[in-house]
Design a protein around this nucleic acid. Sequence first.
DNA 1: CAAGATTGAGGATTCAATCTTT
DNA 2: AAAGATTGAATCCTCAATCTTG
Lengths: 177, 177
Amino acid sequence: MSTVRDEHELFAAWMNLLQAQSVVSEALEDRLQADSGLSLAEHEALSRMAGSPEGDLRMAELADLMLVSKSGVTRLIDRLEARGLVARRACETDRRATYAAITEKGRITAERAWPVLAEGLTESFSRHLGDADVKALRKAMRKILAGNGKWEDTRCSVGFQEHVAPRAAQTGERSAG
Amino acid sequence: MSTVRDEHELFAAWMNLLQAQSVVSEALEDRLQADSGLSLAEHEALSRMAGSPEGDLRMAELADLMLVSKSGVTRLIDRLEARGLVARRACETDRRATYAAITEKGRITAERAWPVLAEGLTESFSRHLGDADVKALRKAMRKILAGNGKWEDTRCSVGFQEHVAPRAAQTGERSAG
DNA sequence: CAAGATTGAGGATTCAATCTTT
DNA sequence: AAAGATTGAATCCTCAATCTTG
């Protein structure tokens, strides 16, 4: 069933995945950093808040949505708050919880960064792939996530389309209320 | 050409790639850590040295092969040396260069870890993928790497088969003197 | 001066412990 | 006691500066 050749092919695929992820992440991060001074994680956090109905998310929600630990989120929000891109708000119904709410400045910063990110993604990622490649890739990644009990629909949608092409909201309206 | 739906699909694929990479890396790292106390990068470094003709590699070679900076390699080798898994050796022909040479203990540790890693990779990665998925995945990753000028054949082969099937290539004693 | 390697400083992330609220 | 969040300590990584050799 699993020959040495298989194992080798498998391992090579894994190494290539790691390397490709690294290369693309670096490219995106560089562009984003130069343009807005944000890290990928910081931009993701902002975008997730922007995409939520009230423009805010609880710290634990953010931690659950993102690839960062709870304390990691605390520090990440600290940085964004110091730059005036988010503001912490107390929760009225549960005084243990804290909301991170995106500010106007945060919204502007995050929206401005989207085209940069989209361009970078095209440049370093999708430009080299066929449409079928992208679909196959996503399918495979989804299988891996599901197989490891980590598949959640909300994790991969981060309100992208709203920002790059707000006019298209007419076709597929997604009321955020 | 690029509709909003495309962009969204593309971005979702990218997010899923990030997440899958994270999930699998964590699974592998946990197993490896529990079994041998090595990080993935440390094990990779050991394996690359083990796979070289003389069982050693220059610091800069390691940095080039791996996803770590030059100073990162210095620190990584520091840690391995402190554990007696590698030893630094001077280069005779160029006194600026330093070789990191794997020790016998390092070889044993790295070889013992291979089956653990292989099992983890099967469990969290390939078990959920068809043979075609793996091939398609590798192809796509290869395209991305090549498109970004980062494709090198040596980067993805790390002497895997030698270790999981030692009878294929008799592992002999090697005096690193 | 350029190349190879190391060091110091600083950033980001995590775990475990802590504090408050439920 | 458990949940939500934060903090302190530790780890790991990178950049820029440094040192040595070519």
